[in-house]
């Protein structure tokens, strides 16, 4: 199925900073609707896009002007809410943070759901297994004794120690780019480990031992094969593989 529509919505006004001439772009989208068929199919749509348009703009244009049944998640549309991680030209990205002009619009751009999680409809996957792994690593500050009457004291250096992993928006781009996760859904996956790291290396936290024990499991950090897919996929620029390595190292060096 191919359709063309004139550009009307969501383009930067002409002459805006960063504006480049409009261009045509074809999206090849993986469609699946179990109410219609058990089989997933590819569908192509061609739309006119402008310089600053993102893959999300093209998806919206298709949904709003051509096929309302195209289904995907999105909210903030500028890379902070983590709703719209999808596989674009075989690589996990946020649709709202990927400019069309940056993914070679001369050829059809493929858009598929992220891998390793059950597909519900079109680009929407079931996020529950992902969040279940996250919840399992105890993603909250664990302290003991009396609370301080004011704030806990923490040096900026100690605060910086885990800064990178506080950036996580739980979009699942990393976890669903991991070949180990694809073949073994029981594996905690990079995102859960990143969030464990965020607390294990927080000087205020006292729950590292418990978390390291959880991640020492056979489905824990040792399953990581350091393929760096996760680091490459992270839309927040978190050095995911490095964080996983640091958790591994903590497991060896910290006494249980």
């Amino acid at each position: 199925m191919t359709a063309v529509v004139e550009n009307t919505a969501n383009a930067a006004p002409d002459g805006q900073a960063g504006a480049v001439a409009s261009f045509e772009v074809t999206l090849k989208i993986r469609r699946f609707n179990p109410e219609v068929s058990d089989e997933a199919t590819w569908e192509e749509h061609t739309v006119t896009a402008h310089g600053t348009d993102r893959v999300l703009d093209a998806l919206h244009k298709i949904k709003w002007e051509l096929d309302g049944s195209l289904t995907f998640r999105r909210s903030c549309a500028h890379g902070v809410c983590g709703s719209d991680a999808v596989r674009i030209n075989g690589r996990n990205r946020l649709a709202c943070k990927t400019l069309l002009k940056d993914v070679n619009p001369d050829k059809p751009i493929t858009v598929e759901p992220i891998k390793g999680l059950p597909v519900i409809k079109d680009l929407v996957v079931d996020m529950e297994p992902f969040f279940a792994s996250y919840r399992e690593i105890m993603p909250f500050l664990i302290t003991s004794g009396n609370e301080p009457s004011r704030e806990n004291i923490q040096s900026q250096a100690d605060r910086d120690r885990f800064d990178d992993t506080t950036k996580c928006i739980l979009c699942a781009a990393c976890t669903s780019s991991c070949p180990v996760f694809w073949t073994d859904g029981q594996y905690f996956g990079p995102a859960a480990i990143v969030n464990a790291h965020r607390f294990i290396f927080d000087s205020r936290d006292e729950g590292a031992t418990q978390r390291l024990e959880i991640l020492n499991d056979k489905e824990g950090v040792w399953r990581c094969r350091t393929t760096f897919n996760c680091t490459e996929a992270c839309p927040r620029g978190i050095e995911v593989t490095k964080a996983i390595q640091e958790v591994k190292r903590a497991m060896i060096t910290r006494a249980f």
Partner: peptide, 21 residues
Amino acid sequence: AVLDLERMGLPFNRTPEGRID
């Protein structure tokens, strides 16, 4: 409200004395 969030784990930026900046 700010102190509650800090004690819940919020990683605020810090002053040289280690207080909330």
